[in-house]
Design a protein around this nucleic acid. Structure first.
Lengths: 209, 209
DNA sequence: CTCATCAAGTTAGCATCTCTAACATATGTT
DNA sequence: AACATATGTTAGAGATGCTAACTTGATGAG
């Protein structure tokens, strides 16, 4: 269901031929947007600059996106997909029901927030009111479910019960806030000062009892 | 040390006289900025519109602020002052050393984030890299100290020890993340579904042992 | 009181940005 | 081959951030 599938990847060899048609401009614009959001910050991003980077005129994006906001939404969605994949991959090899699985999700959550702070803040930082896109909410819910599934197994609950939801919510709040603060205060750089993994283990235990 | 003191509050009666000089344009612009940031969102804010609202030309602000960013910084600083006052006021009447004081700070922290989400997100949402202003860091540290002081008393520690700092950091992370999520998901509206005060009491206890 | 000075307004204008309208060119269907 | 459609282009309107140069009025020295 990748949103790029409907665009045929033609002329992969003819980039230098200055083809009138780009091949997959939509994907190229998303990638340019992603880069710029990281380089300049979510607010300093401009459509024009993304166009320059993709090598097209400033009007071209409007054949693919309704407006600037939709361009950003598409970029965030792509980021959330990657984020989800990474969190799932992080679970690989850790035994079912182990609390270590919850720690692993938290570590990966924070790693994403720190390695792609632009996208992370674009999603969560302050644009939410405008970007009240149902696809974003759905993606967020999907990612949250990964955590809930593990919490349920850890607590020995039969499924996503109300109690599971409550505990998961507490855990998410903590890791979410931690992500912001670590980045804001550049505390990730002072890595030796505190062991992130240990903190997550500690808090998970406290929260899940 | 109010930053407005140096501006004489003249012509308080002559607003309608269309005085060439405004009286206290700096404060008026900060207030207009605050309103607009809440109404339109931190990103949709424009200097021009603040000027319109304050009734001056678009060049006027640059006599008081270096650029748009500094205008926003000044507005955030003003908000942080109010935030601090409110948190301190919330402690009034609660006995020293009581864990209830920590809950009260958390409640007030969240209340601010939900009642002034624009300012809250302007400070914490995604502009931090650009707004690496030492005054903002200092203000943040001051507000954090309010919490640390209470944590120290609750733990019976002699002062802001490393352990106090660690526990306070965990608590802050949790409340910080909760603030974002409650607003993002508009969960504050579904107030009956969960008792915020109870959650904070629960988590504080878990975190402080 | 007068006048020079300075702070704090103004207008005009440049560079940039978002987005639209009208036009141009590939692509692929028939 | 020809038409329809998708996907580019150029031109330009309207908003914005900020600067330069000018204007106004408050203030303090003589």
């Amino acid at each position: 269901m990748s949103s790029t599938e409907k665009y045929h990847a033609t002329t992969s060899h003819s980039v230098s031929k200055k083809a009138y048609h780009h091949g997959d401009l939509r994907a190229a614009l998303i990638e340019a947007t992603r880069q710029l959001v990281e380089e300049k910050g979510p607010d300093r991003f401009s459509v024009s600059e993304a166009c320059r980077r993709a090598g097209v005129s400033t009007a071209a994006p409007y054949k693919h996106f309704k407006d600037k906001t939709e361009m950003l939404v598409a970029t965030v969605l792509e980021g959330m997909d990657r984020h989800r994949s990474k969190m799932l991959a992080a679970l690989d090899g850790i035994p079912e029901g182990s609390p270590e699985r919850i720690t692993a999700i938290g570590m990966e959550y924070i790693a994403f927030a720190l390695s792609e702070p632009g996208i992370f803040r674009l999603k969560f930082g302050g644009f939410t009111d405008r970007i009240a896109d149902p696809r974003l909410e759905e993606g967020g819910q999907q990612n949250f479910s990964i955590l809930l599934t593990e919490v349920a197994k850890c607590l020995g609950e039969p499924g996503i019960t109300e109690e599971v939801r409550r505990r998961g919510f507490l855990l998410w709040s903590f890791v979410h806030g931690l992500s912001f603060i670590l980045h804001d205060r550049r505390l990730a750089e002072k890595g030796e000062e505190f062991d992130l993994h240990a903190i997550l283990e500690d808090v998970s235990e406290r929260m899940l009892n």
